[in-house]
């Protein structure tokens, strides 16, 4: 049992972070904290990708004498793109929160719901 956890600790970290992130998104009512949770959730997926590219004892892919085992660089490249996407998402999300705060004077989900209900 212990070995199962120790050998694949990267996946366990992923799962932990993923659940923590999703939990924050679902549970918190503060819109900023939700975005932070979303970021944690996305980061866990990045770690999933990057850790699967790692080969034991492998180096960066350099074609030189003496280097035979390489880690897979493709997941890193993919995640570079995904990080850019995640930054853009966070930026748009933060811009929305700023505007929500300007026009509702609140960034708490329950208060916002209350305000919207009163408007109906």
């Amino acid at each position: 049992m212990f070995e199962l956890i120790a050998n694949q600790y990267n996946y366990w970290i992923c799962i932990l972070l993923m659940m923590a992130g999703l939990y924050i998104v679902i549970d918190h009512t503060n819109l900023l904290k939700k975005l932070i949770g979303l970021n944690i959730f996305q980061t866990s997926v990045f770690i999933l990708f990057i850790s699967m590219g790692k080969v034991d004892g492998g180096t960066a892919p350099i074609l030189e004498e003496g280097y035979n085992v390489f880690s897979n660089p493709l997941p890193h490249v993919l995640i570079l793109t995904a990080i850019v996407v995640s930054i853009a998402t966070t930026a748009v999300g933060l811009a929305l929160v700023v505007n929500i705060n300007k026009r509702f004077q609140s960034i708490d989900e329950q208060e916002l719901e209350q305000i919207e209900l009163e408007e109906e």
Binding site: L22, V25, L31, K34, L38, F41, Q42, V45, L48, F49, M52, L74, P75, A82, V85, T89, V92, G93, L96, V97, N99, I100, R103, F104, L112, E116, E119
Partner: peptide, 30 residues
């Protein structure tokens, strides 16, 4: 002004959806 909260909600759900798709892609690539 409700457009802002609607957009925010879409952003959260949409990003979770897209990240799920990313996990799916990762598992297939693996």
């Amino acid at each position: 002004r409700k457009a802002l909260t609607a957009s925010y909600e879409y952003l959260i759900m949409g990003t979770i959806g897209a990240t799920f798709i990313l996990i799916g892609i990762g598992l297939l690539y693996m």
